[in-house]
Amino acid sequence: MTARMPTALAATFLMLAPHAAQAQNIEGFRPLFEDRLHQQGDGFSLCVNTLSMTAPFERALASAIGDILLTDVKIIDIEPNAPVRPLDTALSYTAEQIYILMAEQCDGFMGFSIAAGYPDWLTVSRPYLVGENILITKDPTVERLEDIPTDRPIGSRFGTAGDASLITYLQSLPETRRWKRFGYGENTLLLERLDDGTVASGVIWEPTLQFATKGDPAAAGYRQIAAPFNISASQVGIGIRTIDSYLKEELADAIEALVEDGTIDALMREHHLAGETSAAQTSLNR
């Protein structure tokens, strides 16, 4: 099932005063948000960003969650209302629009970063996907960051955990020994700049690299190199209404079981989010 912004609620949302505070916008929908019961009887619905690179994996995972919990999971594809970058996962809806979607049809919304700060009405499940951010290059002579001259820039994707780790490290270095950082607004552009030599190395989420190369980065010429600093992993979970604490517990139990039995690793490989050398979720997702 594919859905856009719910029509009746969207019309109401768009009629709100354009300069009203976000909290005021949300308050108008709070009674519906808090009173809505699960619409699937004993089951529940999970919404998926249909154009995200992780969407096929997340649909398969949602079905596996239903199998583990012996319940019906209704999978709803949500079409973004703005262009989506091919190698990114962000949903282009605002917080208010997410609120409306969860008020009317989404018991859970897949694809939420664990690290991000969220309003009080939203919580995030245990992560179902933990991916390392890695330092890569296409230069066969480079084995570690220190092999790269400091006049050659390092690339990263704006706003990611890997980008934050790189910034922290570079700021700790004396200016005379500091590489330049070139930040890019999308992963496709980051990989293109690695390909054409604009940047000598780049920090990227490993599932993104795996997806971009159909599970074989080496065949595409990419190599992971040693980083002299700790790069935080990125974790992805399911966004849930804070009031649905029981659902959060159920999802945590299901995800734990699917991590432990290897299902999530198998689904990640099937959908080109992990390769043969990728660390297993049993070691990353604890």
Rank of each mutant, 00 (worst) to 15 (best):
F158P: 02
A161L: 07
V199K: 00
D244E: 06
L284V: 13
D67Q: 14
G237P: 06
A227S: 13
P207Q: 06
I148A: 11
G239R: 03
L135F: 08
A115H: 13
V130S: 09
R269Y: 05
S92T: 15
T242S: 13
Y246E: 14
L258Q: 04
A8L: 07
C47V: 00
Y93H: 13
D107A: 06
R36N: 09
A17K: 14
M102F: 05
I68C: 08
E270L: 09
R30F: 07
L284C: 13
D253E: 11
P31R: 00
S278L: 11
R223N: 07
I78H: 02
M268S: 11
E79V: 04
I98L: 13
K180Y: 10
L101G: 10
Y118S: 02
E186N: 15
S156G: 04
L284M: 14
A8Y: 01
P140R: 05
G197T: 11
A55G: 03
E104P: 01
Q39M: 06
V199A: 01
A220C: 14
C47E: 03
G43H: 03
T188S: 15
L170G: 03
Y99F: 14
T176I: 07
R269P: 00
E249W: 05
L251G: 00
E79Q: 08
T188A: 12
E192D: 12
L189I: 08
A55P: 09
R126C: 00
H272N: 10
R286M: 10
R157E: 10
A23Y: 03
R36T: 10
L91M: 15
A17H: 11
M15I: 07
I154P: 08
D147V: 02
E34F: 00
R59H: 01
R181L: 15
S63C: 15
I100E: 09
R152P: 08
Y93V: 09
L251W: 01
S63Y: 15
I148W: 05
E79S: 13
D42V: 01
Q24M: 12
T277M: 10
T150A: 02
R36I: 08
R30D: 12
H272M: 03
A55Q: 01
N49H: 08
L32P: 06
K138C: 15
E34W: 07
V48S: 00
S234T: 13
K180F: 09
L61R: 00
I100N: 01
L191I: 08
D77F: 02
A252H: 09
V236Q: 11
Y99N: 09
Q210V: 06
L251C: 01
G185N: 10
A17E: 15
L251A: 01
M53Y: 04
R178M: 08
A55D: 01
T188N: 14
A82H: 14
I136R: 03
Q171Y: 11
F29V: 04
D151K: 02
A257N: 07
L51D: 08
L61Y: 00
V130P: 09
T141W: 12
G155C: 02
T94K: 13
S172C: 07
E175M: 11
H38S: 15
P217G: 05
E175C: 02
L9W: 11
R59S: 12
A219I: 00
